[in-house]
Amino acid sequence: MEYQYPIDHDWSTEEIIDVISYFQQLEKAYDKGVNRDEFLAAYRRFKEIVPGKAQEKKICDEFEEVSGFSSYHTLKAVKEKNSDEIVKMK
């Protein structure tokens, strides 16, 4: 994929890596499917870094604009599944 991940330059290197990891889980959900529990673990870490709803929406909207992958719809689908189920977005 030829796009950049939305990052905040105030984040530490570890935080940037963890946010990118979340977006990679999001990409995987659309590509081949993602394990529900792994996705939620990545999302929980993402929320530790981006705790505010407004900032989360801004970052996720920026990512959706460049990638076409919806964090909101994926998270909604993931929450409807049971533990260890695979979520595949269309």
Rank of each mutant, 00 (worst) to 15 (best):
14 E>I: 13
90 K>Y: 07
57 K>T: 06
84 D>M: 10
72 Y>L: 05
20 I>K: 07
52 G>R: 08
86 I>A: 08
90 K>P: 14
69 F>G: 00
41 A>N: 13
9 H>A: 04
85 E>L: 04
70 S>I: 03
87 V>A: 12
34 V>I: 15
24 Q>H: 03
44 R>W: 13
81 K>G: 03
41 A>R: 12
88 K>C: 04
12 S>Y: 07
69 F>T: 03
14 E>T: 13
74 T>Q: 05
25 Q>H: 15
66 V>F: 02
26 L>K: 11
59 I>H: 01
89 M>T: 10
89 M>H: 08
33 G>F: 08
70 S>V: 09
59 I>T: 08
82 N>M: 05
40 L>Q: 15
75 L>M: 09
26 L>P: 01
39 F>Y: 15
36 R>A: 11
45 R>W: 07
74 T>A: 09
78 V>H: 02
50 V>Q: 06
81 K>D: 01
43 Y>D: 15
61 D>P: 00
20 I>Y: 01
68 G>Y: 08
47 K>H: 12
59 I>N: 05
39 F>V: 09
13 T>K: 15
27 E>C: 05
84 D>Q: 07
55 Q>G: 00
66 V>P: 03
45 R>Y: 11
49 I>C: 09
39 F>A: 06
30 Y>F: 15
35 N>H: 09
60 C>P: 00
43 Y>N: 14
34 V>H: 07
64 E>T: 02
82 N>C: 03
60 C>M: 01
50 V>A: 04
57 K>M: 03
